[in-house]
Structure formats: C-alpha cells, structure tokens
C-alpha cells in the first residue's frame, strides 16, 4: 500500500519488517533546553517515520546550523549536520544523485531564511525531491537571542535594544513566490496535525516546505501561544482541509472579495454557499498566496495551518535521471577510449 500512498518514495527500497518510533531513536542524549518545542517535533517525526515503510538506511536527515539543526544526531538514520544555511544545497546534491533515498532537511528561520535564503528558494524552484522542515521560532536561539528574519518589526533583543528595524519575511509567501509546489504550516504542540502535514509532505513528489511554528521557551517564549491556548485558538487558528470550506471558529468564514482578495466575514445563511472552498491543488497560486497573508502579523489572529499548496510539477532529480538515460539510449554507454581519442588524431610511428 505504501507505494500508492507515497509516490515520491517509489524508488526507495521498502522495509522488510514493521518499524517503530524506537527504531528511529539514537543513543545520543538530546540536548535541547528543557521545554523546547523541538522535543515535540522530534517525537512526532520519530513516530511518523515507520509509516513510510521504507528502509531506515535509505533515509537521510541533513541540517544546517542552529538549535533545530542538531536534529539529525537524534535520528537513527544516515545524517549530516552541515554548515549554516547550506543544507538545501547539500541535500540537493545527495537527492539528485541518489533517487533511492528519502532526503529530509531540518532547518530554522535563521538558517533557512537569512544565511541560507538563496539555497532555499532555489531548492523550491527546482523541485528536488526534498522534504524541508523549517522550525520557525522567530528568534536566534543558539546564538542566544538576537532577532531573526521572521521576528516582528520592533522586536527588542540583545542586538536590537531599541527594536528591530527590518520587516520580517513571511516564509510561506516567500515559498510560493519561489515556485514551491508544496507549502504547509503546522504547530509543534499539535502532534496530530503535525503528523498529518508530515504525511502530506512525504506523499508529495518534489520539494515540500513545512513551516513548523516552534516555541523557544528561553528567548521567545509564548510566541505562538495565541494559537495554542484553548481560550484563544479557536479565534486564531484556521484549519485548512482540501475540498472543505475555510472557516474560523463556529461563526466566521473566508470569502473572496470583489478585488480577488480574501477576507473574513460572519457566516450567514445568505452567504454560507460563498465560503471559499480550499483547493490546495489549484494551478494558480494566487489564492494560496492570499491565504499566506491572511493572518494578522501582530496578533497572529486568522493564521491558516495545514497544506496551503500541493501541486504537481516535474521533479528535478527525475528529469536529471531521464536525461542520463536518454543520453545513454541515444549515444550508447560512454566509451572512454573513444572519448579520449576524439576525431582528429595523428600517429607517430
């Protein structure tokens, strides 16, 4: 069944025996701060991996630098903890040359969007078969609390005692602008939702970007509390489901205005047929982009989570392999002696 469920893994050897979360744990002591959101994400990923049904040795986690980038040390798969921002580039070379691997990138908001921004956007546009988990805590943790490219404007930190001056990135808007074929958002503490998004990402053929709102309880505690608190989350969270009307809480819905933009409105009998129905597979990215802009940047009210975009486009590594196959079919397997000899030679007796 796995072959149907995970077309992106059809070239990856299947596991002979059922696996458990325990199989994916290493003997290394996990060294995140107590209370860090990374623990929950690690546990969710370790629990989810057996579902893929592929051999553990054909799974690779590649990370950059930052708190989240310690992740590979705790996954009992192959792994590389590389250098700051470069994980998507390294993973691209690995995935492009080894179609029998399931390659995952673990990165953070500083790693992916600041120093590694260039590699992220190019991985997305190429559509390499990579699953990128972007842990967004809107702060620099490992360097002890400077503002990050997703920190809100005016953020008071050690490096910005009078408030940060630069406007933040919206990671999902950026991803859609970079021609991403799969864009999703989830939250560290919602195991069930996080797992459902990982599943959708794993099923996707090509690059999947999953933004995970992750709490840094040391330097930016409670950044996403409004999305988690039972008292506030119903008014703040919009759970996207493909093919279902997009609703906020019991009373509000998302509607398309006359200008094409999206807005929230109280649902009435008169307008309930016009509630926007979520279509993650829409070829035109305009609605998905509008959804990335729906949240209030300051309060995080109206934050959509789930799969915003999931479309099909040729996958870079598949195309690359096809070119190699075609070259071999058209010209025959390379003949080194013939290559070295070329066409213009002379002989000295």
């Amino acid at each position: 069944m796995t072959e149907d469920r995970f077309p992106s893994l059809r070239l990856v050897p299947k596991s002979d025996e059922p696996q458990t979360a325990k199989d994916f744990k290493t003997d290394q002591e996990v060294r995140w701060c107590p209370g860090c959101g990374d623990y929950a994400i690690l546990a969710a990923v370790q629990s989810f991996m057996p579902e893929l049904g592929i051999r553990r040795e054909n799974t690779v986690f590649v990370s950059g630098i930052g708190c989240s980038s310690r992740f590979p040390y705790y996954m009992n798969t192959y792994g590389m903890h590389s250098i700051h921002g470069r994980a998507p580039a390294i993973a691209t070379g690995l995935a492009a040359s080894r179609p029998d691997l399931s390659v995952w990138v673990v990165t953070g908001d500083g790693d992916a969007l600041s120093i590694g921004g260039n590699h992220l956007i190019h991985a997305l546009r190429r559509n390499v078969n990579l699953k990128i988990l972007l842990f967004n805590n809107r702060i620099y943790g490992l360097t002890k609390g400077q503002y990050s490219p997703t920190s809100e404007l005016g953020k008071i930190t050690k490096s910005t005692p009078m408030g940060s001056l630069d406007a933040p990135f919206n990671p999902l808007s950026l991803a859609i602008g970079a021609e991403a074929t799969f864009v999703a958002r989830t939250i560290d503490s919602d195991r069930q939702h996080l797992t459902s998004v990982l599943r959708a990402a794993a099923e996707h053929e090509g690059t999947a970007l999953v933004e995970i709102y992750q709490n840094c309880n040391i330097f930016n505690d409670g950044a996403f509390e409004v999305l988690k608190e039972p008292g506030t989350r119903d008014e703040a969270l919009i759970r996207l489901e493909h093919g279902r009307p997009i609703r906020l809480g019991a009373e509000q819905g998302v509607f398309r205005g006359p200008d094409g933009g999206l807005h929230l409105e109280a649902v009435t009998e008169a307008n309930q047929d016009r509630i926007l129905v979520h279509d993650a597979g829409a070829a035109n990215p305009a609605t998905a982009f509008a959804l990335t802009r729906l949240a209030d940047a300051d309060t995080l009210h109206h934050t959509p989570i789930g799969v915003l975009r999931d479309v099909r486009r040729p996958v870079y590594d598949t195309l690359m392999a096809e070119q190699l196959d075609r070259a071999a079919a058209d010209r025959g397997e390379g003949d080194l002696a013939a290559l070295l000899t070329g066409s213009d030679t002379w002989t000295v007796a």
Binding site: S82, A89, G93, A96, S97, H119, H122
Partner: peptide
C-alpha cells in the same frame, strides 16, 4: 548541476560525495 552560487555548487558536490 549548475548551482545558484559557488557555495551551492560545492555543497551539492559534497552531498553527492556523502551518497
């Protein structure tokens, strides 16, 4: 692999070497 920059060029080569 024509990379997006010099760093990605060597990064991809190193990733392939790991593989």
């Amino acid at each position: 692999f024509q990379a997006e920059d010099e760093i990605a060029g060597i990064g991809a080569a190193l990733g392939a070497a790991f593989g």
